[in-house]
Write a protein that binds this DNA or RNA. Sequence first.
DNA 1: TAAGATTGAAAGTTCAATCTTT
DNA 2: AAAGATTGAACTTTCAATCTTA
Lengths: 153, 153
Amino acid sequence: VTKARSNKPLTTEERELWHALKKLSDVSLASVGNTIEAETGLSGADFGILSRLVELGDGVLPQQSLQASLGWQKSRLSHQLTRMETRKLLRRCESETGRRVHVEILPKGTATIEAAYPVHAIAVREYVLKHIDAKEGAVLIQLVRRLEKSLEN
Amino acid sequence: VTKARSNKPLTTEERELWHALKKLSDVSLASVGNTIEAETGLSGADFGILSRLVELGDGVLPQQSLQASLGWQKSRLSHQLTRMETRKLLRRCESETGRRVHVEILPKGTATIEAAYPVHAIAVREYVLKHIDAKEGAVLIQLVRRLEKSLEN
DNA sequence: TAAGATTGAAAGTTCAATCTTT
DNA sequence: AAAGATTGAACTTTCAATCTTA
């Protein structure tokens, strides 16, 4: 059966779910970001980039990989890297072979992210993980996998 | 038993759940927001304000109520209202009695939000609701309620 | 030309200071 | 002084145009 796409107003239940999703990011996830920023001086964006450099690339990563992993627009990443470069957290360098740009974490970046990890872990546990049981977690992870797949098309 | 707050690194499972939650809100909100903006010229912020004026206040609302409902900082709301005022979507007016500012939707705002509602409903269903079954929806709503409550302290 | 990256200007957000009225 | 709102400057994100090299 082909289901017609409805443009009727959202029902109360649908709206409730939609608002729950908005609040999830606006309120709960923001708490983690604010905590990190207040205690380490790294913005959420800074943390996202430095942690990926360390975890995905052991300190160096093609700019493209960073971009894909963050899901950002390229100009946003470029501006962000420029700012972080002036703060000596990382530097851009050329890949051996070709023309691509690589991004390398600098000592100050390493020190900062290492200091931020425990703060991040505490905040994530305190504001979020603590409130989710194992069964709910499993449901959420499956859901997100499905959503991601559907958006790839 | 008092559970000590751990600052150990997040486990793989914890990290997966954390990333899943971030993507859940980031990705689904962005898809819906982009669609509305492309098809109606309203940003997510515009839509949030106009829809609240209509749904909560039947067209007029104290600025404070708007702010509380959105969870924004006051300066953000103030700047946003100024921009929307110049676009003739709404106007600020004084409350009869006291000193508070009220926000009133203008004809152009009404027309625009009415046109945007169906687009919003379609996008929310297509990008989000379609992929979430009843059980998952219930889990999400409960979880967000719990998270909100925990942040009130 | 097409992909990868950068740039500058415009739009949006935050922070701290200020203004206004009770 | 305290609450409600605004302002300007700094910072971040987006958009469109541009640059560079395979």
